[in-house]
Design a protein around this nucleic acid. Structure first.
Length: 285
DNA sequence: ACCCCGACCTGCAGGC
DNA sequence: TGCCTGCAGGTCGGGG
């Protein structure tokens, strides 16, 4: 799915429904779902058994559950189509169920990783000294993290020889932003996606960051963005921020500021949506 | 050291 | 009906 708001919705669900529970049986039903666990599915299952879940954490689009009494965590990424669901044990298996985690209590629910396209997955990793799974040490803090450094971000943009949307999607510069919220924040900022980052003034960066934060917080308040049943919380419910989108998916619909038909352009094997009047391209595009 | 592109998957919609 | 193409909210590795 999912960008930061959708992943945060899932994190809150994990915190509520799985914190403090101890793993009993683990079933790995598709090897690709544990491909980041280099020792393989059997090792993944054997190591996880008997460990107790702590409080789920998130950085950008990555989620992890610290495991009690070992300096390691269960790391998850939803990829494009992953779901973490807390389901009654007796609920029928989903078509794309990849991993099942049962607990040793009597609550009657289990954790399921369901993923149509298998771009996501779960894995176990040692923590760095600051409690982060070691394999995501390169992921930047996200803009809702109180420790995100706005000044360092601006200076990094000035140094880069790239364009503003590429930079927003670069998870080592700023994490949690994906194709939807990049287009939304750029529309709010009246910035064309191909504007070079090196020309951004400090106030423009500040404005852009403000819009990134606003759109993510608004989406979170509405349970995230769901166009279909692929993007759901741990109870299988969709968010409804899709009704509030101003740019993404609005090709040929009127710009909500000036009425000009919105455009879609193929961009890096995906799409960029923008208003051709409010968001003028740079001279050298 | 950057920066960019293709590869990795499955399923759906639309055109012919 | 079926085949083909294009498209989908992400990340990473390797080439330039």
């Amino acid at each position: 799915m999912p960008e930061l708001p959708e992943v945060e919705v899932v994190r809150r669900g994990l915190e509520r429904w799985t914190a403090g529970r101890t793993v009993d049986e683990v079933q790995v039903l598709h090897p690709r779902a544990v491909r980041r666990h280099l020792a393989g599915g059997a090792d993944f299952a054997a190591r996880l058994r008997g460990l107790r879940f702590g409080t789920a954490m998130r950085r950008g689009k990555y989620l992890w559950v610290p495991l009690d009494e070992v300096e390691s965590s269960l790391l998850g990424h939803l990829g494009m189509s992953g779901q973490l669901l807390v389901q009654p044990q007796e609920a029928p298996d989903e078509k794309h169920l990849r991993i099942r985690i049962r607990f040793d209590d009597t609550l009657g629910t289990e954790l399921r990783f369901v993923d149509q396209r298998t771009f996501g997955g779960l894995s176990l990793h040692e923590n760095t000294p600051d409690g982060l799974p070691d394999v995501i040490a390169h992921i930047a803090r996200d803009p809702l993290d109180p420790a995100f450094d706005d000044t360092a971000f601006h200076l990094a943009l000035r140094m880069r020889r790239t364009t503003v949307k590429r930079a927003l999607l670069d998870q080592s510069l700023i994490s949690g932003v994906g194709n939807i919220y990049a287009d939304e924040a750029l529309w709010r900022s009246r910035l064309h996606y191909e504007r070079p980052t090196a020309a951004l003034t400090r106030p423009r960066t500040a404005e852009l960051l403000g819009h990134v934060r606003d759109v993510m917080r608004e989406a979170l308040d509405q349970g995230g963005t769901s166009f279909d049943s692929l993007y759901v919380n741990v109870n299988g419910e969709s968010g409804y921020f899709d009704r509030s989108l101003d740019a993404y998916g609005r090709e040929d619909e009127p710009c909500r500021r000036c009425g000009t038909p919105m455009r879609r352009r193929p961009w890096m094997n995906r799409s960029s949506y923008f208003c051709p009047r409010c968001q003028r391209p740079p001279r050298i595009a």
